[in-house]
Design a binder for these strands. Structure first.
Length: 264
DNA sequence: ATCGGTACCTGCACGC
DNA sequence: TGCGTGCAGGTACCGA
């Protein structure tokens, strides 16, 4: 579920609550969401103080003072809930010296990992879409022969976009999701860079997108779903040209676009 | 090196 | 009401 704007929303809510707090107890209720042994990980976390809450692409990074990092990826349905009570989907619980944090995840595609450096899957992530410069983005894009949408979803190419914001950025840039990256003009590639930045910034400002599951650290939905222009709007008129929005499948992912505004 | 396809999980909407 | 089917915002891993 959560893409960069949702993870950033959670990070901003958790940072003031978690920074400087000490972990009194950690419990893991399902070993599948944890990379490593539950009891050993809980023992290593006990007594650790949290220095800061960072984010890298869709990963939350709880930096601990003892040079350890607790990395949390929310998968499709993960949520981090501050002060909530345990449910059937609660997979982990962290008791702090002030407050407590639950990790809920019905589908268990999320992952929690404790390690000294950064986990391998974080180390190999591509650049942050809100930090990469236009020229570098254009160069990376034009070097690839893949279709543009699956490329935007490839986290080693660019870290943080998921299905919703890929479709939204391509619509705003007027690019067909099946367009081949290397065949785009520099001008259109630059336009895509700008579209990605604008949609991510607007989504963060709105507190993320809630289609069905996403909730922030207080269990509240986001506000960006009403501003989506194509995602989930099959048959509705394109906000730019009024042609019906179409749904297709690209790279095994449901894909929404305007066949008139978005060109290959 | 890069790519497309499949697997991993559960819950829900939908049609019969 | 109940059951089968398909779909869902994510990534890892396989073989081509």
């Amino acid at each position: 579920m959560p893409e960069l704007p949702e993870v950033e929303t959670i990070r901003r809510m958790l940072e003031p609550r978690l920074a400087r707090r000490r972990i009194l107890k950690a419990e893991f209720y399902d070993r599948r969401v944890l990379c490593g042994d539950p009891l050993e990980t809980a023992a290593r976390l006990r007594g650790q103080r949290i220095a800061s809450v960072g984010r890298r692409a869709k990963h939350l990074l709880l930096e601990l003072e003892g040079d350890l990092t607790l990395t949390i990826h929310l998968g499709m349905t993960g949520s981090l809930l501050w002060g909530a009570t345990r449910t059937a989907h609660t997979r982990a619980r962290f008791v702090l010296d002030e407050g407590r944090l639950l990790y809920d995840d019905p589908r268990m595609f999320g992952r929690i990992e404790l390690c000294e450096a950064l986990p391998e899957r974080v180390a190999r992530l591509g650049p942050e879409p809100l930090e990469i410069k236009p020229a570098e983005f254009v160069a990376r894009l034009l070097a690839r022969r893949a279709m543009i949408k699956p490329l935007l979803l490839n986290q080693t190419f660019l870290g943080g976009l998921g299905n919703i914001y890929s479709d939204e950025a391509l619509f705003r840039a007027g690019i067909h999701p099946r367009a081949i990256a290397t065949r785009l003009s520099k001008k259109r590639a630059r336009r895509l860079h700008g579209a990605i930045r604008r949609v991510l910034r607007a989504a963060i400002a709105a507190g993320g997108t809630t289609i069905s599951d996403y909730a922030d650290a207080e269990g509240q939905p986001g506000g960006f779903q009403v501003r989506l222009r194509v995602y989930g709007r099959e048959g509705e008129p394109c906000p730019r040209c009024h042609a019906p929005i179409r749904r297709t499948v690209v790279g095994q992912r449901g894909t929404y676009f305007c066949g008139r505004c978005q060109r290959k």
